[in-house]
Structures are given as C-alpha cells and as structure tokens.
Design a protein around this nucleic acid. Sequence first.
DNA 1: GTAAAACCTCAACCAAAGTTGAGATCAAGC
DNA 2: GCTTGATCTCAACTTTGGTTGAGGTTTTAC
Lengths: 160, 160
Amino acid sequence: MPNSKRSPSDCGFPAGTLSVGEVAKRSGVAVSTLHFYETKGLIRSLRTEGNQRRYPRGVLRRVAVIKVAQRTGIPLASIQTALARLPDGRAPTADDWAELSRAWRAELDERILRLAQLRDQLDDCIGCGCLSLKTCPLRNPQDVLSGQGAGPRLLEPEAG
Amino acid sequence: MPNSKRSPSDCGFPAGTLSVGEVAKRSGVAVSTLHFYETKGLIRSLRTEGNQRRYPRGVLRRVAVIKVAQRTGIPLASIQTALARLPDGRAPTADDWAELSRAWRAELDERILRLAQLRDQLDDCIGCGCLSLKTCPLRNPQDVLSGQGAGPRLLEPEAG
DNA sequence: GTAAAACCTCAACCAAAGTTGAGATCAAGC
DNA sequence: GCTTGATCTCAACTTTGGTTGAGGTTTTAC
C-alpha cells in the first residue's frame, strides 16, 4: 500500500476533503444516515484507494439543506429530485440555494394553509360538538382540500 | 347452525348493528383498515355466532373522529390513547367529543406554529441566500424549536 | 509492528399505517 | 342445495427514513 502517512480528511485528495466520520460530526447526522443518503442519491462521494469515502466540503451545505427541507415535511425523494437540478460541475451559488428555498417555501405555505383550514373547522366544531353530528364539515376531507364554502357532501349518511 | 334467515347487519344483534363491509362503505375506509384499527384497539366489535364482526353504529362516529385526528397529524397510537379515555359504558356525548377536539386543536396549533416559524426563517433566508452561509438560523433545529431570538448555535463550523 | 479506531459492505431489523393474498368459512339468493 | 359474495385469520409485503450488527479492511497512533 503506497499511501503511508496521511491525515483522515486528506489522504491524497484535494485539500479540505472530509471523511464520513468528519461529515457526521460536523453535520450532526449519523454515519449510517450519510451512507443511506448516498444510496438515495442525495449526496455523492469520491473514494480513496482503500475504498473509503471522501466528501468535498460542499457536502455540509447539502446535508444542512436536506435537513431543513425535511423539517418542512418534504420527503427525501422530492429533496433528491430538487437537489438533482442543481448545477453539476460548479458548486451551487447562493442564488441556486435561494431558488430551492423559494420552491420549498411554497410547499410549506401550502401545508400551513391546509392545517390552518383544518384548525378553523375544528374550532367551529368545538363549541357545538358537531364532530359527532352528521353535518360536520370535518367529516368530509374533500371540503377541506378544495374550498371551504363548498356544500357538505357526507361520507356517511349515519342513521339513514 | 340454528341461525337461519337474517339480514346482514342484524343477524340476532341489537337493531342497527353494522357489518364490517357496511362500516367500510359508510365511513369510506377499507375493510382491511377496519381490521387493522381493531388490532390497534381503536375500534371494537362484537361477533356473531359465525365469528363475523358486528359494530354498534357509534363506530361510524369513532372512525370519523379517527380520520379527523389523523389529518391533524396525530399518530394512531396517540389517537388510541385519547379514545381510550372516552366513557366505557355509555355512548360518548357531544361534550366528550368536544373535549377531544380541544386537545387536538392544541396540538394542531403547536404544529402550525412550528411550521410558521420555519417558514419565516426560510423567508429571511431566501433574500440573502444565507441557507448556504454559516450563520443561517435554519442550520440549527434547536433554535427553531425553542424560541426564535436565541443566539445561533451552529451545527457545523464549516471552513474552520 | 501491532493494537485500536475508523471505515467498508451487506443484510436484517424497526416503526407507522396500512395493503395484498391464500386458504377457509359464513350467509344469502335462487 | 348450490353458487356467489362477504367475511374470517394469518402471514407477507409496501413505503419512508433510517438503525444495528456481522464480518472484514484501512488508517492511525504508539
């Protein structure tokens, strides 16, 4: 083996390359999770002669972004798709990231809106106990998803 | 077998008892899901002599409530716990349901609040592209979860 | 030059919330 | 009385987002 004394993050690779353990420590995600992300195409790595992963430091950004997106409720598969649209050769710019943020903000908005609608209706129902009555709008998901004023279409006639 | 001519929903049981297929049709959930809910203790059934399930009609309410709770993002296990606190002998009153709604509304509020905080921070970040910079508050989940003004504690020093 | 720490792959397992299918029984209509 | 539809149980499979462990290699450190 011709590679003798080398630092863990820099054994023959461009300066600033990180081992999986270092990425784990600095990003706060487990090594196993990084492996997992790699199998899902969310991150990529180079390999040393000894087959160990070496990450460009940009991976820290990527992982941070993945975590943010996850917290907004976006599934990994969608995150992967979004990340795949980032420029391939160069490192992403602030604008590239901002573009992603914008898209995800929209999705987040959507989710918040839906939950707020649900809350308002739950609100209406608390006072009257109508959750147990047949006209309760909460009984019909369709109403919640597509406009609040729509005529109630019941899922269950209940008591004929 | 001594049970000769009987209607599907009423073969020897109190009037208004429902078969699993009827509950499925009227509640909009699959038969398999009802079975599943039963194994999880979310609903209960009586059995005919032939071992088929018969539900009291109150089950429709219960299923409707389960679905509402699910839409607010509450896991089935928690729903089960909540439902288990309903009165055992008598059918739940409007007040009983309202009590549940109140609790779930609080949880829903909490979730909305968290998402809104996340959105606001994402908002701040879109303009400046700071998602890629080391001071971005989004990098640190703790900040988001426990107060917005807290000093940013970084997950990753990034670039030493 | 050797021991320990870090790393590798691959497979199995976990939880949640169900769905699907096999093989058997029940119930109802003609 | 027989066929058809509904139901039964039980096990296996699905997806998402990972974790855990076995068995083996690499790298680092003394």
